[in-house]
């Protein structure tokens, strides 16, 4: 009898855990869904980094492609995708800045002397 009660109690605890996990999953999911504001913030950061790459005369074609993809996704209301593409664009633009900056000295390593 005691064992039976313990079994019921265990089942109830399990149910509560599963329910809690489901709630937290839903909450976490809704917290991750991007808004237009998230997208616009990411887009501004990406465009700013790409502008800096342009000032260094070292933009990448893939950065512009990612920016275009972000804008296209935003136009169709898919802000998750738009946010991701804008973040990709920012990462690419930052990489092109690092490249331009480091190559200011590193090009000499390749020079025929």
């Amino acid at each position: 009898m005691r064992n039976f009660s313990r079994g019921i109690a265990t089942t109830n605890v399990m149910k509560k855990i599963v329910f809690a996990l489901m709630v937290s999953a839903v909450c976490a999911g809704s917290a991750r869904a991007a808004s237009e504001a998230d997208y616009l913030t990411a887009l501004a950061a990406a465009e700013s980094a790409n502008k800096e790459a342009g000032r260094l005369r070292n933009q990448w074609t893939v950065t512009q492609a990612a920016l275009n993809a972000a804008k296209k996704a935003a136009e169709s209301g898919n802000f998750d995708s738009a946010l991701k593409s804008a973040q990709d664009a920012e990462a690419l633009a930052k990489a092109s800045i690092v490249q331009a900056t480091s190559e200011k000295q590193r090009w000499k390593d390749m020079e025929i002397r």
């Binding site: 070292n58 092109s96 190559e103």
Partner: peptide, 16 residues
């Protein structure tokens, strides 16, 4: 000799 682009190539990467 300066590397550029996502592929990180300079003119010299190919032609030297």
């Amino acid at each position: 000799y300066t590397r550029r682009g996502q592929l990180n190539f300079s003119c010299a990467s190919c032609h030297v």
